[in-house]
Design a protein around this nucleic acid. Structure first.
Lengths: 347, 347
DNA sequence: TTCCTTTCGGACAACGTTGTCTCGGTCGGT
DNA sequence: ACCGACCGAGACAACGTTGTCCGAAAGGAA
């Protein structure tokens, strides 16, 4: 009662050998119907559940996959994790979630902890650049990176460069020449790629770049809000925003509204809820985190079956969710300093 | 190389006994410095990580906690899970997340699976009413419910009734007498409590109830959108909405905007991002899911130390985030059918 | 009836770890 | 110098499970 029933208890209760119970539980071998019934009723009577840890210890194969992301409390990653978990259920695998908090040291701890748990494999949004310490475990514990790639690892990403180009080009097509990039963090690979796309598009259109329009935005929504205020306070403020990061988009939009600056053209990298309800509605590059999670998990299961597969960099196509914000016009040259909200009726 | 190093490999490499390695790894007993160094260099050389499963098997104590929620892809639960994970890191515990998908059968499977994994304890947003099958495991695996309570289990909730009363009273105070409740699902305990509060407030103010203003809303954002359209199509449509569920709030707000019906007064049970950016800004009852997760985890750790603690029902205080939507006035009696947006300037 | 084959149950070891026990060695005290 | 006490290290068993092997029983054929 106090302690849990083990296979041994079931065996004595059913008056059979331990091995017979094991056979019944796993259903692999044939057992006489009479005995099978005895065993099964003993199982329900004793509320026996096989000890997965002992089983995994014996068989060597774990029964869980690990997921390491920046934070679970992030629309992008929670959707991704959700996809992984849905898929994992089908294979009877548990999902262990860990957050790296964007700290390479913590990421390392989490990964080693997952290794010690003998997880079957890992889905990782990498932070650190140096994951060589994983090498000894890679054969028994494949790793697939998501959102960001890492040399030597399978990855599931989007074409950041191309998608970001699309977004910036939409803004340029609406006539904007002062476009701020909010969400840049040099530590993040995707942020660097998106910035490169941003700068290339500007150059191709003969628009002068301005480093002040690309503030460094570390984690946290406060930083994004501050970044918005900073660029708006510039002598030559931007007329458009390219939000390179879904994590910060809500905060920036919220700050725009509280400042009454809804006259800015906006494109967000990453869709988010209510993007279609704020005024103006926010045009987004859709990353489809759910598909990314599902694809990463599928790739992981392929690696389970064949660990020496050639590396693959899988890309999930992005979409452009056409709403209205990217069409916002440029204000007249004689802009009122510190002017109030200016709304533009769209088509 | 192919297989992972075990404590035995370390022992032979360092030329000591297995037990000595164990002592070094756990740092419990004193080991001669010379031997300790030998062992430690063997550990780094072989990339040894102790096998947590074997350890747990031997010691009997698991090293993970399970979390079972409706869905991880839900702002409320992802925030809650995030809090649990943050806390768990500090104790070196892994977090296994499972979604019940609001299916009692699936919830049962997940719980039994967690039992078979010998998790240390479980944080559960209960769906099913009958969890007696957990009884045999409760002493070795405490359970704390969150968001919803269950007879016989510790719980962390909010005072749904009182909080919902506050919300509905705000709407009544603004003069509304036709208030729709969107988000009701009879299967959900909190939904029932919030509905009770809603009805009590109406009765106390002499307002006639109308079952048509309380459509049944099953899961999924489509259902919430449909429910909104249904109540708005009523002969006597509501002038105010009480959104009893954060999960559906975004969908309803989005639908309001796409229908151009931003003239409705709104109070949402549960805050969400951009509630302060849509027009009108949405007044919310704040449930503080992060605190709920943290508190549930803390309670769980108390139960680890003392499994026979008296049951406790912990309540996290709610706040009312005063924005503007609950102040929306009633349209004049001569309402224009299908009228366009009507904005009301607030104080 | 006897032998062979088939079929199914059980004893045993092992997965990697830790708790218990014991033993050898060393140090200090008298 | 001898004895006792203490401390550090190793042998052994066990956690719950499964894989391997073997033996026993039963059934069919000659």
């Amino acid at each position: 009662m106090g302690d849990r029933a083990s296979i041994r208890d079931v065996a004595t209760a059913a008056n059979v050998s331990i091995k017979t119970v094991s056979r019944v539980v796993n259903g692999l071998d044939t057992v006489a119907p009479e005995l099978r019934d005895r065993v099964q009723s003993a199982i329900v009577e004793l509320n026996y559940v096989p000890n997965t840890m002992a089983r995994s210890l014996k068989t060597g194969a774990g029964n869980a996959v690990g997921v390491v992301v920046d934070s679970i409390d992030d629309v992008f990653f929670s959707s991704l994790v959700s996809a992984v978990e849905q898929r994992a259920i089908g294979l009877g695998l548990a999902v262990v979630v860990c957050s790296s908090g964007f700290d390479p040291q913590r990421e390392r701890n989490q990964l080693l902890r997952l290794a010690s748990q003998h997880v079957r494999g890992i889905i990782l949004a990498p932070v650190g650049e140096h994951l060589e310490f994983l090498e000894p475990y890679r054969t028994s514990m494949p790793v697939v990176t998501v959102d960001r790639s890492l040399p030597g690892f399978d990855s599931v990403t989007v074409d950041d460069y191309a998608a970001a180009r699309t977004g910036v080009e939409r803004l340029v097509a609406s006539g904007h020449r002062r476009i701020a990039l909010i969400g840049f963090d040099r530590r993040i690979q995707t942020a660097r790629r998106r910035r490169a796309a941003y700068e290339d598009v500007l150059v191709e259109h003969g628009i002068a770049g301005d480093a002040e329009l690309v503030p460094d935005v570390p984690l946290g929504s406060d930083a994004a809000r501050a970044a918005l205020r900073t660029v708006l306070a510039l002598p030559e403020p931007p007329s458009a925003l390219f939000l390179s990061n879904a994590r910060h988009a809500s905060a920036v939009i919220s700050e725009m509204h509280s400042l009454g600056r809804t006259d800015l053209a906006v494109v967000s990298f990453g869709d988010f809820s209510l993007a279609d309800a704020v005024d103006p509605t926010i045009s987004c590059i859709d990353q489809d985190p759910y598909s990314m999670g599902a694809l990463a998990f599928d790739r992981l299961t392929q690696l389970f079956q064949n660990p020496v597969l050639d590396r693959a960099d899988l890309q999930v196509p992005t979409g452009f969710v056409e709403r209205s914000s990217h069409l916002m016009r440029i204000p007249e040259p004689a802009a009122q300093p510190g002017g109030r909200t200016r709304k533009v009726r769209i088509s």
